[in-house]
Design a protein around this nucleic acid. Structure first.
Length: 726
RNA sequence: GCGCGCUUAGCUCAGUGGUAGAGCAACUCGUUUACACCGAGUGGGCCGGGGGUUCGAAUCCCUCAGCGCGCACCA
């Protein structure tokens, strides 16, 4: 490009729309997103697995932040000479995607999955997922993400399917995946079981009833579960009830007539609460179930899968529990069994994260990952877990972080992580959902067969359930690299360097990956966990459709460019802190992009001699000052303080380079000292070029575009230029 | 109930023992050639309250208050 052409090019304001698409195409065509194609200087492997977005629709600002942060890390390390792999993919997100399609079917075609049948329904979901996938891919590209598309993965594709079945089989053989009749969280709306982590507790004010139960007064918020309560529980040391002995029976008059009650003494009964006496409903309460297990008591199902009362409820059978409650109380009142009613009882109600329905605990036969069961780990590189030792999945999860092998940032989340592990119960992994990995277990009469492939012979029927979507996500760091095959990629890129994701899925995902990688590979899945905060609106509220405060990343890219959108999500976003984003902020960073553009115009216009060198002391000082900025920036990125790194650069480029250095250069450039003039020209050019390099990870499009216009014709892409290190 | 954070300029936030900072906003001034998507400047803070340690505290300790989050949950 000639001088006049260059000046012409920079004569109008920067327009991201004119350049971004072409730049991304050049990057893709260069092949450098794929580490196999990087030049020889790129030796040491560095890998990040993209947290796969759900194929449920489109990307939001949270995704944009994730893509921006990870791309900064990857581009930084690539320029520093690492052999960088950033592997993209998508997640089938079983429940989320299935309910989305069910919603569409219900609204648009007024039909349900049951009408369609399993196969036809799955065809619809698959079509929806494919479309959603294509949208996501185009959005990821618009953000400028330098992911290796040649290695793209999907949690439900063939390779991952094989990985999931293999993982299940190996854990089943080790006795860590077990089937059992246990109390689980039943979502009556979603018609599936969910795990403890998929529950959200919501505060609710309700009535609390005291009923006469034989000689006792018992309290409950849920009269509709009480029909078959035949055990009365009290604390062994409660002096008020010392005349009653454990195992003693007595006749009591109850809702539907007399029944024989048995006294149970158990420490969980809190003498301070109510009267200190309770009856238990083992089938529909976790606590009660535990008591029943301890004392080997019987339980009976009272409520069915649809939230309706069963025949045990007598005249109330078939009623919805909500409708039945008051009527049951009326009947008890008529029998003189109501002692009192407390009107404003505040308690927490378990609801399903996805459907919002109130969880109904039920005893059901489901599959579980046993987290506290001991097994012998054949091979382990995790500090604190020797190869061949007896250990548990819980211990693996704890040791990986406790030992520092995996470091969670910000560190306060390590405490939250340990707290969660300490309270962790077995992970329920079966779902009564159609979309997902079908459980690789087959039944024939009393026989059970578990393997990667179906059994030979007649009469086998596969388990109807699918796996919790986090089961396949848990394998992500290594299923993406071709596991269970011992691939070259697996040997090269695992454990990964950084797992970057939102703090809201630390338990769902981060912990499960540590579990899976620990068991199947005997390694940690990643060395660093970088948790970013939630992107909120300018008032700090969550972005949601109902509030109408959603800022769509694509709109912002359209209006202000991808670079401005990216850097607005990075500056001011310290690890783990929520970010407040406003359109005004993004506009501000578009101004910054334009500033950079205009700096270039000035430097190019004033660069008569491209071969001049820096000779003046004053200029050398300026370059030294820049070195300090480069060192600071590098240190900040290494410490995962991308916000401070970007802020440092913003400040230097605008308020030092543009406002001071360029202003002070004007007299020199217009003066008659040719030596000083040439030296200053070279200095400004060097400052510009190196600023572009430092800014590239944050604002890849504009920096690449400028670099391509001002560097010599044979210069490589800026994306693989060397990071300025001093 | 157990645990974890946060509270610094109007707003968003840096700052972890040594004279209070940035961006945005506000106000004033300025358009002879990098840029009005601009520049020069100005104002603005008992660093949540109280106590302690220290020569010295926004920073360390204790305590209180408000806000937020995680886990558990009482029948």
């Amino acid at each position: 490009m000639s001088l006049s052409e260059r000046i012409e090019k920079f004569n109008s304001a920067y327009d991201p729309k004119k350049v971004e698409h072409a730049i991304y195409t050049r990057w893709e065509e260069s092949g450098f997103f794929n580490p196999d194609n990087l030049p020889e200087r790129h030796v040491e492997p560095y890998s990040i697995m993209l947290p796969p977005p759900n194929v449920t629709g489109t990307l939001h600002m949270g995704h944009a932040a994730m893509l921006a942060i990870e791309d900064v890390l990857i581009r930084f390390e690539r320029m520093r000479g690492k052999r960088t792999l950033w592997l993209p993919g998508t997640d089938h997100a079983s429940i989320a995607t299935q309910s989305k399609v069910e919603e569409i079917l219900s609204k648009k075609e007024n039909t349900t999955r049951h009408v369609l049948g399993r196969d036809a329904f799955l065809d619809q979901v698959t079509a929806f997922a494919r479309e959603s996938h294509d949208t996501i891919v185009s959005q990821v590209k618009k953000m400028g993400s330098s992911v290796d598309w040649s290695r793209e993965a999907y949690t439900l594709d063939e390779t991952r399917h094989h990985a999931v079945h293999t993982a299940f089989k190996r854990m089943y053989d080790a006795g860590l995946i077990v089937q059992g009749n246990r109390i689980v969280n039943w979502d009556p709306k979603g018609q599936t079981v969910i795990s403890d982590d998929e529950i959200i507790y919501k505060e609710e004010t309700t009535k609390f009833y005291y009923f006469k139960y034989g000689p006792f007064t018992i309290g409950t918020a849920r009269p509709e579960t009480k029909f078959a309560d035949k055990y009365v529980v009290m604390h062994p040391d409660d002096v008020r009830y010392k005349e009653y002995t454990h195992g003693q029976t007595l006749e009591v008059e109850w809702i539907n007539g007399p029944l024989t009650a048995t006294i149970i003494k158990d420490g969980v009964a809190n003498p301070e609460f109510g009267t200190g006496v309770m009856t238990i409903t083992p089938w529909h309460s976790t606590i009660d179930f535990d008591i029943a297990e301890r004392h080997k008591l019987e339980g009976e199902q009272i409520i069915d899968k649809y939230g309706k009362l069963l025949p045990v409820a007598g005249e109330f059978a078939g009623m919805k529990i909500k409708d039945a409650r008051e009527k049951i109380v009326e009947k008890l009142a008529a029998k003189g069994l109501v002692v009192s009613v407390e009107e404003n009882y505040l308690h927490n109600v378990a609801t399903a994260e996805r459907t919002g329905a109130t969880i109904e605990p039920q005893v059901m036969k489901q599959w579980f990952v046993a987290v506290t069961k001991e097994f012998t780990i054949p091979h382990s590189e995790i500090p604190g877990i020797p190869s061949g030792s007896r250990t548990t999945l819980k211990d693996i999860m704890r040791s990986a972080v406790e030992s520092g092998a995996t470091h969670i940032m910000p560190e306060r989340f390590e405490k939250i992580y340990f707290h969660w592990i300490n309270n962790l119960r077995d992970w329920c992994i079966s779902r009564q959902i159609w979309f997902g990995h079908r459980i690789p277990v087959w039944y024939r009469g009393e026989e059970i067969y578990c393997d990667v492939t179906p059994p030979e012979g007649e009469g086998w029927e596969q388990d109807q359930d699918t796996l919790d979507t986090w089961f396949s996500s848990g394998l992500w760091t290594f299923s993406t690299l071709g596991w269970p095959e011992q691939t070259k990629d697996l040997a090269t890129y695992h454990p990964t360097n950084v797992l970057e994701t939102g703090y809201d899925i630390i338990f769902f995902w981060v912990a499960r990956m540590i579990l899976m990688s620990g068991f199947h590979l005997g390694t940690i899945p990643f060395k660093n966990v970088y948790l970013h905060g939630l992107v909120r609106d300018e008032k700090g509220r969550k972005m949601s459709k109902s509030l109408g405060n959603i800022i769509n990343p694509l709109d912002m890219i359209e209006k202000y460019g991808a670079d401005a959108t990216r850097i607005s999500l990075i500056i001011g976003a310290a690890p783990g802190n929520d970010t407040k984003l406003s359109e005004e902020r993004i506009r501000g960073y578009k101004h910054f992009a334009n500033k950079l553009w205009n700096i270039t115009r000035f430097v190019v216009e004033n660069r008569a001699h491209t071969d001049s060198v820096v000779t003046q002391e004053e200029d050398k000082k300026l370059l030294e000052e820049f070195n300090t900025v480069a060192r600071e920036t590098t240190a900040h990125i290494e410490a995962f303080r991308l916000d401070l790194a970007a802020d440092t650069l913003y400040h230097f480029v605008w308020h030092r380079f543009a406002d001071v250095i360029i202003e002070e250069s004007k007299p020199i450039l217009r003066g008659d000292n040719a030596t000083a003039q040439a030296s200053r020209q070279a200095t400004l050019f060097a400052l510009l070029v190196d600023s572009l390099k430092l800014l590239h990870p944050f604002m890849p499009f504009i920096t690449e575009e400028i670099y391509g216009s001002i560097s010599h014709p044979n210069a490589p892409l800026l994306m693989i230029e060397e990071w300025p290190t001093m």
